[in-house]
Design a protein around this nucleic acid. Structure first.
Lengths: 123, 123
DNA sequence: TTTAATACATAAGAAAATTTGGCATATAGA
DNA sequence: TCTATATGCCAAATTTTCTTATGTATTAAA
């Protein structure tokens, strides 16, 4: 059985901050790429963040299933090199949801930065 | 009885993204301000983010208690205008923890931005 | 005197991710 | 050939964390 917990090479703390952002990250990636499969998403995030962020499969797949159940994502299966892949892409309504989720996340990030960059107050 | 749920004027979505960041936000504010009390923290965040982020008391107070129990924060009570205030400040070890937590959060924000700003891939 | 603001606190429940396990195929190395 | 690694999907139990809903109490303004 293969060793799975690659996570420990990442910052434990940053993983904590992921809470709540996972759906938005998935939606953003699916706006940038027409279709992606689960494993590909985990690798993409790892690549973009130079290994600093690692989506766990235990978190990702339930999220994908939930988004599909909500009608935000649709799927199509394909067999590649003898291995199954399940591609996800945004539905029509999914595109709208993705845009609003991503813009809200961007706003949140901007608010976080305001807090982090805050100069010491006098008093 | 006073009306409590001021939260509905904020973005529900952004509140979701808060998950996991609350402690780090508190620690950052306490690095910028020698001491703060709970209610003050909620108002400070509201002020900094122009009302876009609202820390709920139900989330904040347990977090403050947890950080105190961990030895990150210490408290002192004071009576102001007939009302009790519980001031929190960073302990010595708290300062170190605050620094690492905040820098990790900053890294996380930077990673999020990489994901959000990602240009569409070819293919 | 009722409402709103200030100020603390707790408890039940939901939401979301983690942990930990499972299944299966392909490939490279010892 | 045996093993580890990489690829690819999934689910259940648990834990963490926040939301929602209260409770208590003082001050001030309408």
């Amino acid at each position: 059985m293969a060793y799975r917990n690659v996570m420990y090479i990442c910052s434990m703390q940053q993983q904590t901050y992921l809470k709540g952002c996972l759906s938005a990250i998935v939606l953003q990636l699916l706006q940038d790429n027409k279709r992606m499969y689960g494993y590909e998403i985990t690798q993409k995030v790892r690549e973009i963040t130079a290994g600093e962020l690692q989506l766990t499969e235990g978190a990702l797949y339930p999220t994908l299933h939930k988004l599909e159940a909500e009608g935000v994502l649709s799927t199509e299966n394909s067999l590649v090199d003898g291995r199954n892949r399940k591609y996800y892409k945004l539905t029509e309504t999914g595109h709208q949801q993705a845009q609003s989720a991503v813009s809200e996340l961007a706003d949140f990030v901007s608010n976080l930065q305001k807090i982090l960059n805050l100069k010491p107050s006098l008093g």
